[in-house]
Design a binder for these strands. Structure first.
Lengths: 168, 168
DNA sequence: TTCAATGCAAATCTTTTGCAATGGG
DNA sequence: CCCATTGCAAAAGATTTGCATTGAA
């Protein structure tokens, strides 16, 4: 088991390192400075998976360097978005979440209103249809966002999760 | 011209009255009270078109009754959303916008990042495809949101708008 | 009469900003 | 050395809430 974890960690570390390199290139191209704080934040961010809120990120960042505060995390996150490595999302609760780009090429979201689980999906026909509709309207798409809100109860996911929560 | 405006106003008033009735039914079904403020806010809201921010709504509401404040507008808006007559939307600038339901049955949005214009569109094939994808994932859709971000420059809308702004 | 609704101000929550101190290039 | 970056705290902006007063049923 320790071996498997090490393997996974190595893969992760390569992924994280690539992202960090990409960010440093962006930083340097803009004539900005590389700092310990920025490196820490970027590394911690790309070790996390999913849709990360600023609060979650700061909590993890503080484990590495407790002196880093909200301001620096916000500022670095904005740079990450500007660099194109990260996307900002807002799902309804008024608070931004951030997601590393290219974890999967592109995807949309199904958000379960019962259990809060967020599932990712993607479909080429959908992209094609969107592009077609844009052309019909003389509109050029830079990016899009599609969110399906509903319930994943049908496949028992919800109930299972709820029960696990209740049992805990 | 005055005649045309009257005609339009009459149609509007019928629409507004229908919405208000629907809201009062909801209020009474919940055992809540109908108040002057709530009527005012609902009427003013449904006379407006488009994607209305709380600030915009309050400004208009104050023209009718200047004593009404943010709190009541927020609270009434929440009731309207709960009643299903109104939908809340968030486009990226961190501030909620509200839109009357059924103005058009359902529609999605194209948001121009150059000029900020928001165009509505809708397409049955899109709905069909979404439903199909949901079924494949054992997911039941209650509602969805699709936003295309890009540019409407191609059809000259942007430029025209920009020039008008510059000339002003 | 009773209890929900209102209006105001204060509180909260997320995000941004000013500024003195720090530190990269 | 110079100027961008940091950390803190204060500010800003959107939304919610506590509470005394008002008003609908």
């Amino acid at each position: 088991m320790a071996v498997v974890e090490n393997k996974a960690q190595q893969v992760d570390e390569q992924f994280v390192k690539d992202k960090e390199t990409g960010f440093l290139e962006f930083i340097q191209a803009k004539g900005l400075k590389t700092t310990r704080q920025r490196s820490t934040i970027v590394q911690v961010f790309f070790r996390l998976r999913g849709h990360i809120s600023v609060e979650e990120l700061l909590r993890e960042v503080k484990k590495v360097n407790p002196r880093i505060g909200y301001a620096t995390v916000y500022r670095t996150l904005h740079l990450l978005v500007e660099s194109g490595l990260v996307e900002e999302r807002r799902f309804g609760d008024g608070l931004a979440r951030y997601e590393g780009r290219n974890e999967v090429e592109h995807h949309d979201h199904m958000i379960c209103l019962e259990c809060g689980k967020i599932r990712e999906f993607s479909n080429p026909k959908l992209l094609e249809l969107q592009k077609q509709l844009a052309v019909e309207n003389g509109f050029k798409i830079f990016r899009h966002r599609l969110e399906l809100y509903g319930s994943c109860e049908d496949i028992g996911e919800c109930k299972r999760t709820q029960e696990m929560v209740n049992e805990a």
